[in-house]
């Protein structure tokens, strides 16, 4: 019985890690695109396009105002279209990525906005293209804040995977609900909770470590 518990936990953890890792990667890619676009298209941005800015902002707010569990249900057809099924961890990655991307977009937008306008102006005065400013000024200057923000987002995605577990995504969340809740296996419930807590701590610890090492290298700490 102990073996069986460990096996279940191990399987659940593997599925959770798989979902968190890929969802984070995809959400990050979409989130960076959204965040950067939001910052550069602002009224006084380096590629000012206030109308586009407003449209993207409204879309992000729209997606973010939906409770995540409803969003997953809404995105089931998309998951089926992309990966051929609406069940299992791979299908969940589609919903998780799309669900978390707007959140990441906002976090990245806020981090990038912390870069002083003077630095951007200096780059402009040196004849830098908007593209150069994005990749050589905005993102590197905001990097420690970006790492911290992304850490928060990855933890949020970990929570989301647990929620997604409730509707057939697999992973630790599904373990907790199927065994711990529906079959009254309190031991599994508690074990699952402990593993999730440990996972979240590990993510936070790693994120803090990376941010600190960047700052230390730049002697800002």
């Amino acid at each position: 019985m102990r073996d069986d518990l460990l096996d279940l936990l191990w399987e659940g953890l593997k599925e959770t890690l798989y979902m968190v890792a890929w969802s984070s990667v995809f959400a990050l890619l979409i989130g960076i695109a959204l965040g950067v676009t939001l910052v550069v298209t602002e009224r006084n941005g380096i590629l000012a396009a206030p109308t586009l800015n407003k449209i993207i902002g409204t879309l992000i707010n729209g997606v973010r105002s939906l409770p995540f569990i409803i969003l997953i249900v809404l995105l089931l057809p998309v998951a089926r279209f992309v990966v051929g099924t609406s069940l299992g961890p791979t299908a969940a990655i589609v919903s998780l990525s799309i669900g978390a991307a707007p959140f990441l977009g906002r976090i990245i937008e806020n981090s990038l906005k912390e870069v002083s306008s003077g630095k951007i102006e200096a780059a402009k005065a040196m004849g830098a293209t908007p593209w150069t400013i994005i990749f050589r000024v905005l993102i590197p200057e905001a990097l420690p804040a970006l790492v911290r923000g992304i850490t928060i987002a990855v933890i949020a995605i970990t929570e989301f995977t647990a929620v997604a577990g409730a509707i057939g995504a697999g992973g630790l969340g599904s373990l907790a609900i199927r065994f711990g809740y529906q079959r009254f296996r309190v031991d599994i419930l508690i074990a699952t909770v402990i593993v999730i807590i440990a996972l979240v701590q590990l993510i936070q610890f790693s994120g803090d470590g990376v941010a600190r090492s960047i700052l230390r290298r730049r002697r800002q700490l």
Binding site: S116, G118, K119, A122, A125, V137, P140, E141, Q220
Partner: peptide
């Protein structure tokens, strides 16, 4: 151009 607040890149 030079500036009051220098505007150097802290990442470099």
């Amino acid at each position: 151009m030079i500036f009051q607040h220098f505007n150097l890149l802290d990442s470099q």
